[in-house]
Write a protein that binds this DNA or RNA. Sequence first.
DNA 1: AGCTCTTCCTGAAAGC
DNA 2: TGCTTTCAGGAAGAGC
Length: 290
Amino acid sequence: MPELPEVETVVRGLQAVLPGRRILSVRLGKTDFIDDPKLLSERLPGSSIGWISRFGKFIFVELSGGARDTNSEAQLHLLIHLGMTGRVTACAPSEPVRPHTHVFFALDDGNELRYTDPRRFGKIRLADDAWMDALRARWGEDALAIGAAEFVQRAGRRGARIKALLLDQHTVRGIGNIYADESLWRAKIHPARRADRLNAKQLRTLHRAIRTTLLAAIDLRGSSFSDYVDAEGNPGMFQRMHRVYQREGKACRRCGSAIRRVQVAGRSSFFCPRCQLAPRTPKRSRARKK
DNA sequence: AGCTCTTCCTGAAAGC
DNA sequence: TGCTTTCAGGAAGAGC
């Protein structure tokens, strides 16, 4: 599941091979996850790739000089979201094509940029500067860019459970299920706690825990469980460092208690029942009667 | 308005 | 063994 550290790793890999390349042609398979597939086919051939960057879990590819705006100053931005199972790789066209590969860009160095996504939860869209400005105004800050004070202020006025808030990309962008659980464990906060019931000190601790966790994961090139690989096709190593995620029943690395798993915000949430105390009035999403 | 639940999709794993 | 069912999750949209 690509979250911020995985996307950052992919972006660094693409940064090493894509800038300066020209896109010669575009070939598409299934397109139901592409915002405007015809636009891609029309505008991308002939355009040059500039800087590659990351915002939350989005990959931004700067493009200039496409087929129909050779004399225009306007930049185009290719937005790629990997969803659950998306992978972007640059390789030789002779490399075997993985199943569910739906986008092929032929590049002027003879290589091919491919987008593969079995579940097609990913998104691809072409945006202009105005669209990008609107998007940045509407979206929350990147999880590695937001300061402690702003995080405390934003989160502290929300009634949502802290796990749901971390997963909601409108508040802080880039955190998904793995890093939400890992950060909450590090900060010793139960996933079902309401954000506005946490004090400023706890929220500052959480902000710090998020940074520490994400940076450590980037160092190990992300977490690989099922599908995630970087731009060269290699898995990450941070899954070996997980403290709670996918460790139900195993010993907490801090206190030895058995890690538990509950549903919060419709997602599996792993936590230590001793280090992360439950809220006083635990919310039950549904009364279970048997 | 603000929060939670459902939906999309496929492959892996569990269940019978 | 082999078929069927369940589950995983990002984020939009529906529902409350």
